[in-house]
Design a protein around this nucleic acid. Structure first.
Lengths: 243, 243
DNA sequence: AAAAGCCTTTGATGCACATCAAAAGATAAT
DNA sequence: ATTATCTTTTGATGTGCATCAAAGGCTTTT
């Protein structure tokens, strides 16, 4: 049995956070590291199904995910919902709010989560003093732009099975970077949410999963997915690879 | 006949640039304005069809478009191309390169263009001194993230005619902000490029144009488009509006 | 433990857009 | 000017995914 940690009791400090390498810049000296701790104002828990922020909310802070899993989505005025991303521990969300001082999407916890609240004014103040932090903030935003570029490629040019393969490979790669297996995962989202992200209907997602399973590429049992033939998956995503 | 300006002869200076309101932050005093001029290292001309930067190129600078029109696109390894955006005067491109120090997309001039080259190291240095510039850089990147979010909505949820309506309305709005008509425009891109951006084939784009034309919503003659019924276009884009 | 409410799967059918094809209209090259 | 090339339009046909429908599996509630 795992020891139960009282997270609230742990000092809010990036300097001794085990996710630091994922969400904060590296190459800081001790003094700079201490300054960096200032960016996290507090922690906030978000229960499964609850909103971290809503479209239209006043933007004040970025959020570093400590634990849990989120989806972000935009909603059109006539009610259509588009999932714009899934975010996991070590990732930063909220940057959509900077441009207009209001959030432009919803962030929903797909499992109980805890985030570090980083008031953006503090981030900006501190990044004027710490060039490495400044650069880091720029990189995070640029990374998001590049990610969205590849989602556009996916939505604009790929077929259903290619999209799902790309999605699974991306999730696996990110989970692997967090020390988890690169051959199995437990999905935190429904078929419908996957479909929304991939521009597909839930039935199509389900059929693609079944197809992969029939072809012996993966093993699926509800949210649990095991990759049996990673190369086959990569080949579906990009036919050029591995030919 | 218009006087022909020798652009090279004009001092490279944001402080007396007529696009300043579009591409630079407002609310600067004279002193700060002078500092701001430092960010533009030089100008660069790009002929129609030429590349401003290529995917894989070392990232050094952001580019502010002074004149002309660009497209940015990503290419998958098996050769599929996805146009990720169209950029016009006053807009900034190149932010995709920050995260990995290499550009992640191609930027192609769709007409003869001139850009202000802003070395990113200088932008970062100066934005540590000028909070308004810092904020502006953040907003520009955030705006790009938000724009891409709405493209995801478009690609994931909308039908062909809705996509084209959204595309036209967006172009018109941006051209209008530059003092041009909000009821007519000359497209700088081919049907194929529009289609790539919208996740459609060129034939589908052409048919949607023809449909709008038959319905008396627009008048089209090749690249020239005149909006006859803007409300009808808005209604197609978003059925809720104007009902 | 039963009931209620999701979530997922699978089949049957339909449709929006892709693909294939050809011709006409622009634009550029010689 | 004339040819060659590129772009756009329009028609005919095909197909990948959406939609409609129903049943079974999980999870949560009481």
């Amino acid at each position: 049995m795992q020891p139960v940690l009282n997270l609230e009791a742990i000092k809010v400090a990036c300097s001794n956070c085990n996710l630091r390498e994922l969400c904060m810049p590296v190459g800081f000296d001790v003094e700079e590291m201490k300054r960096l701790d200032e960016v996290v104002e507090k922690r906030r828990r978000v229960k499964q199904g609850e909103l971290l922020f809503n479209s239209g909310d006043t933007f004040t802070s970025l959020y570093a995910i400590r634990t849990g899993f989120f989806k972000t989505c935009v909603t059109s005025e006539d009610g259509r919902e588009q999932v714009t991303g899934f975010q996991m521990a070590g990732e930063i969300i909220g940057m959509d709010g900077i441009v207009s001082d209001r959030h432009n999407c919803n962030a929903v916890a797909l499992e109980d989560a805890e985030v570090c609240v980083m008031p953006f004014a503090t981030v900006e103040d501190l990044s004027r003093e710490l060039p490495a932090l400044q650069r880091h903030v720029h990189k995070i935003m640029s990374r998001e732009i590049v990610r969205e570029n590849s989602v556009m490629m996916l939505l604009g040019n790929m077929r259903a099975e290619e999209r799902l393969a790309a999605f699974l490979l991306n999730l696996l790669q990110r989970l692997h970077a967090r020390g988890l297996s690169q051959s199995e995962l437990v999905l935190r989202m429904t078929r419908e949410e996957i479909g929304s992200y991939l521009g597909l209907k839930l039935e199509t997602v389900s059929r693609a999963f079944s197809k992969f399973s029939e072809d012996g590429i993966i093993e699926v049992k509800q949210r649990y997915v095991k990759i049996l033939a990673p190369d086959a998956l990569k080949k579906i995503f990009n036919p050029q690879t591995l030919l």
